[in-house]
């Protein structure tokens, strides 16, 4: 027996649709982690899960609990807001750290710049001994 909440038909089908869409998009993003070849390409992949993947699962949760408790349950929006605000910070920091490490090790040639670099403050940072 598979446990699932007792919802009216329309709500159950909508919840099922959004849960599947969200999980599918998140899985796609995580597969991108495996399929893409370069670190700077792989960074793009998880954003599928943090944008639409999360939003779809949250919509499913909102529909499910609003119908179950017969009142609007919207506290899931807080997770969406929190994820939208924090993902830029963590990804920007991670990419800058990766760029810095590539510069320090001198293999900055294996990715492509279409215009002159604007990251002088990164290159002039002190180069201490770092091992990966």
């Amino acid at each position: 027996m598979i446990a699932s909440p007792d919802l009216p038909a329309w709500a159950a089908l909508l919840t099922a649709l959004f849960v599947l869409l969200g999980a599918g998009l998140t899985l796609t993003g995580s597969l991108g982690l495996l399929r893409l070849r370069q670190f700077y390409e792989r960074v793009h992949a998880p954003t599928l899960g943090t944008t639409l993947g999360t939003v779809f699962v949250l919509i499913a949760s909102i529909i499910c609990f609003s119908v179950l408790q017969t009142r609007p349950v919207v506290h899931e929006i807080l997770i969406a807001v929190f994820i939208t605000v924090t993902t830029p910070v963590s990804l920007i920091l991670l990419v800058r750290a990766a760029l810095f490490r590539d510069r320090v090790e001198g293999n900055a040639r294996n990715f492509e710049w279409r215009a002159p670099s604007s990251e002088r403050n990164v290159t002039s940072a002190p180069t201490e001994d770092r091992s990966s």
């Binding site: 598979i2 699932s4 159950a12 099922a16 999980a23 899985l27 597969l31 982690l33």
Partner: peptide, 23 residues
């Protein structure tokens, strides 16, 4: 429809578990 929802949730959880495995 409850059965559809139950199976959808199982499939979604398997997909998310696979995503965690990829990570």
């Amino acid at each position: 429809s409850t059965l559809v929802l139950g199976w959808s949730l199982v499939i979604a959880q398997v997909m998310l578990a696979l995503a965690m495995a990829a990570a």
